[in-house]
Amino acid sequence: MIEVRGLRMRYGSVDVLKGVDFEARRGEVLALLGPNGAGKTTTIEILEGFRMRSAGEVRVLGVDPAQGDERWRARLGVVLQSWRDHGKWKVRELLDNLGRYYAPYSTPDRKRPWAVDDLIETVGLGGQAGKKISSLSGGQRRRMDVAIGIVGRPELLFLDEPTAGFDPQARREFHDLVHRLSDLEDTTILLTTHDLDEAEKLADRILILAGGAIIADGSADALSYRMSTNSEVKWRRDGQRFVHSAPEATRFVRELFEQYGEGVSDLEVRRASLEDAYMALVQQFESGQGGTAAREFKEVKR
């Protein structure tokens, strides 16, 4: 669905992307993580065909986004970071109008557009269908953006920080929606987020973008495992709490039991979370060879 090889992007004298490589397969949910300014939005906008790249090979649904035609456009869904448009329109009105453009691109296995009332229910705006968009709350507005993004029943959906400003319940509902899109609609999804917990819950695969390149690519489990950062072991002995950070938790626990046997109780072992792995990766990267890139950025900034 997406193939990116050697993608570079240069603004003036600053290289924001310096060789990004990754792929997305059909039906996959990919989360693109990275520090602010790492080029997540730039990457996603190049894939959406809104921005010309400086160099590299990019294929989205088999087409170079720079040459994507309207037929190609109809197979994509786009949710950008901030929309403030169409404030005077009513929710139902706008979805109905935008959906019409997709009707000629309907196929037997993908009926386009999504039936408006069903779509409104799906994103949880049932009570707001007749309301003006300008009167929606922040979370409702964001759900409206998602609804517009999927009104054409896209095969590939781009979500740029979709849950920024959501309360926990709205976030949970949104996660359900993403799962439904991926499971029932067979939609491939590429999302950017700052929320590691969200990435862990939603994504089949996580990409970490830092210093202009993908520095890690794998499932949340694989990433935590690869980093093999220390696990935290907690236990109680003689009425006292102990906490130990061990690189090899299994062996540590075995030794613990060999030494104290029945004396050990309330054992708790916590593997490094994705967040730990992410922090470790980015830190390692910034202090290592990647640090040069980060320093270059700062110099240009001055």
Binding site: E48, F50, E70, R71, R73, A74, L76, V78, L80, S82, W83, R84, D85, H86, G87, L98, Y101, Y102, Y105, I148, G152
Partner: peptide
């Protein structure tokens, strides 16, 4: 105004949206 608030970009993101 519509260029600033994203209406135009929305049209760009829709197939044949600019014509409409």
């Amino acid at each position: 105004i519509e260029r600033e608030d994203g209406t135009l970009l929305r049209a760009k993101a829709t197939p044949n949206g600019m014509l409409g």
